[in-house]
Structure formats: C-alpha cells, structure tokens
Computed example of a mutant assay.
Amino acid sequence: MATPKRKTSTARRDKRRTHWKIEMPALATCDHCGSVKRPHRVCPVCGYYNGVEVVHIQED
C-alpha cells in the first residue's frame, strides 16, 4: 500500500478543512403572526403556512 513520503503540514491540512463549518439555519418571518420561523415550514407559534391554518394551536 502506498504511503506518503512527507507529513502533511498543519497549514495544508487546515486549508483543506476550512469549508467544514457549521452554519446557522436560515430564518424567515411568519406572514401571519410575524414571529421568526424556518422557511417552508409551518409556523410553530400560530400554525399557519402560506396564509392557511394547517395546525390548530391550543392556547392555555
């Protein structure tokens, strides 16, 4: 099996790993209640999606 002739330097190794970053998820505002939610998903606060009530949220 082939083995590398030289050790990979830390700079070269870290340059290769620069694109493996954790990104913050995209956020959008709900058209109905104005709260922050994930795009293309039902609003967890009011239960609306695209102006239609999809899930009935019970208030305490």
Score class of each variant (00 low, 15 high):
residue 40 H to Y: 11
residue 32 H to F: 08
residue 17 R to A: 11
residue 33 C to K: 01
residue 11 A to F: 09
residue 6 R to D: 12
residue 21 K to R: 12
residue 3 T to F: 15
residue 24 M to Y: 08
residue 26 A to E: 08
residue 38 R to G: 00
residue 5 K to H: 12
residue 38 R to W: 04
residue 32 H to I: 02
residue 27 L to Q: 13
residue 19 H to T: 09
residue 11 A to P: 03
residue 12 R to Q: 07
residue 17 R to D: 03
residue 4 P to Y: 01
residue 9 S to G: 09
residue 36 V to W: 07
residue 4 P to T: 00
residue 14 D to K: 08
residue 10 T to R: 07
residue 17 R to P: 02
residue 17 R to T: 03
residue 40 H to C: 10
residue 2 A to G: 12
residue 17 R to S: 07
residue 35 S to H: 15
residue 36 V to A: 04
residue 6 R to G: 04
residue 34 G to I: 00
residue 22 I to M: 15
residue 29 T to N: 14
residue 18 T to I: 06
residue 20 W to I: 14
residue 20 W to S: 09
residue 35 S to A: 15
residue 6 R to N: 11
residue 42 V to I: 01
residue 1 M to L: 15
residue 25 P to K: 02
residue 27 L to G: 11
residue 41 R to T: 12
residue 28 A to Y: 09
residue 28 A to H: 04
residue 8 T to M: 08
residue 18 T to D: 05
residue 8 T to Y: 08
residue 2 A to S: 09
residue 4 P to G: 04
residue 2 A to P: 10
residue 42 V to D: 00
residue 36 V to S: 06
residue 1 M to A: 10
residue 2 A to C: 10
residue 19 H to W: 09
residue 16 R to W: 09
residue 18 T to G: 04
residue 35 S to Q: 15
residue 20 W to M: 07
residue 5 K to N: 12
residue 40 H to R: 14
residue 36 V to P: 00
residue 3 T to W: 14
residue 7 K to M: 10
residue 19 H to F: 05
residue 38 R to M: 06
residue 16 R to F: 07
residue 16 R to K: 13
residue 15 K to E: 15
residue 42 V to T: 02
residue 28 A to K: 06
residue 39 P to H: 07
residue 8 T to L: 13
residue 8 T to I: 10
residue 6 R to W: 06
residue 31 D to C: 09
residue 11 A to N: 10
residue 23 E to N: 08
residue 1 M to W: 07
residue 41 R to M: 11
residue 31 D to Q: 08
residue 37 K to E: 01
residue 39 P to F: 01
residue 20 W to R: 15
residue 28 A to S: 13
residue 4 P to Q: 01
residue 35 S to W: 14
residue 38 R to P: 00
residue 36 V to R: 06
residue 25 P to I: 03
residue 6 R to P: 00
residue 22 I to G: 10
residue 39 P to T: 01
residue 32 H to Q: 08
residue 34 G to Q: 00
residue 15 K to C: 05
residue 3 T to L: 15
residue 8 T to G: 11
residue 2 A to N: 14
residue 35 S to P: 03
residue 24 M to S: 08
residue 9 S to Y: 05
residue 40 H to G: 02
residue 1 M to H: 11
